[in-house]
Amino acid sequence: MSFVLDGVGLTHANGFTALSDISFSAGQGERIALIGPSGAGKTSLLSVLGTAHRASCGHVRLLENDLARPSTAGLRALRSRIGTVYQAAPIPGRQRAVTAVLAGRLGQWPRWKALLSLLYPLDLPGAQAALARVDLADKLFSRCDQLSGGQLQRVGIARVLYQQPDLILADEPVSALDPTLADAAIRLLVSAASERQATLVASLHAVDLALTHFSRIVGVKAGRIVFDLPSSAVTPAQLQQLYAGEDMHAGAQADGTTAEGMATGSTNYCCC
């Protein structure tokens, strides 16, 4: 198994409960899309899988590691096997794209090599190959504060491709991309995961991308899992119920669809 969450809850220090009674597992190599309204808990769920947050209750087993009492060294080794694509890539503006991409393997390299690579890029061909896969080979030495939001998001994807992790987590990985680039980026993540038999879990607002590219859809709302189904089994009625109460008007205007289209089963919409 890639991971097992059993009765997991997450309550923050301020008392807000982000997740409640989450039981969720995946075999190695699965492709899973998390969908649901804003504030549903999708990012919180990814943060537990990525070990950024420790579950307040329940049991988590991740890449054959029990997270009940992880050691510092064990947690560091585990994190090196997990690659995360963020909605807003946490990359310093003054850093060059090549350094940002090579940072994907800092957790796998010995300390001396990791520090040296921050000063002088040690694998230029590897970084350039990863950037080429997201059509940014010409930006190898560009400073990240000179890149657009969409380009920076693609640098984040290239970093995970270079890392070659066993578990890929993607939190709204294409939010800054136009529809054509978004589709290409999701195809690339799916392809990269398949090449290594890595598990891919992505949080997506664009339901059409989720249904098209992912074999399993998990609907999340109010910190709980509402449904967990093969993509072919998800119905328009279930989507309507999942997004009930969301303001669909702005999203419909953005991509030229309507809420009525959603009800009739059209998948050309984005629930934001």
Rank of each mutant, 00 (worst) to 15 (best):
V174E: 04
L200G: 13
Q241H: 12
P230D: 11
F227R: 13
A210R: 04
L229R: 15
L181R: 12
P179E: 04
L242V: 03
T180N: 01
H213Q: 04
A176Y: 13
Q240S: 14
A210N: 03
R216S: 14
D183W: 00
L211Q: 06
A198N: 11
R216T: 14
P230H: 11
L229E: 15
S215L: 12
A170K: 05
A184H: 05
E246D: 15
E172D: 08
T180W: 03
V207E: 00
A193Q: 12
I225K: 12
V226P: 03
L242K: 09
E195Y: 14
T199V: 10
D183G: 01
V190S: 12
Q238N: 10
T212H: 02
L209R: 00
L188A: 05
A202S: 07
S175M: 07
A222H: 12
Q238T: 06
L239W: 07
A210E: 03
L211R: 05
A244E: 14
I168H: 01
H213I: 01
G223R: 05
V190G: 12
A198H: 10
T199D: 11
V201G: 03
A192R: 07
P173G: 06
I168L: 06
G219W: 04
V201N: 04
A193K: 12
P173I: 05
V226N: 04
P236M: 08
L200P: 12
L229G: 10
R196W: 11
A170I: 02
G219F: 08
G219S: 10
Q197N: 15
D178Q: 11
A182L: 00
G223I: 04
T235R: 13
E195S: 14
I225S: 08
P179S: 06
V220C: 06
R187T: 08
Q240I: 04
T235V: 06
V218C: 04
E195P: 11
A192P: 10
R196C: 12
A237Y: 01
G223T: 05
K221Q: 12
V207S: 00
K221L: 05
D178E: 09
F214D: 08
A233T: 12
T199W: 12
Q197E: 15
Q238C: 07
S175R: 11
H213E: 01
D178F: 09
L169S: 02
D171F: 03
L169T: 01
A237K: 05
F214Y: 11
A176G: 13
V174T: 10
L177K: 10
G219A: 10
V207Q: 00
L181S: 09
R187P: 02
V234K: 02
A222K: 08
H213F: 03
V234H: 02
I186C: 01
E195I: 11
A182F: 02
A233H: 14
D247M: 15
L188E: 03
D208R: 00
Q241R: 08
T212K: 06
Q241D: 11
S194A: 15
S191M: 10
Y243G: 10
P236L: 07
L209M: 00
G245N: 09
E172Q: 07
G245P: 11
R216M: 09
L177A: 06
D178K: 09
S175Q: 08
R196E: 10
L200D: 10
T199S: 14
T235E: 07
A198L: 07
V190A: 14
R187F: 03
S194F: 15
A210I: 04
L204W: 02
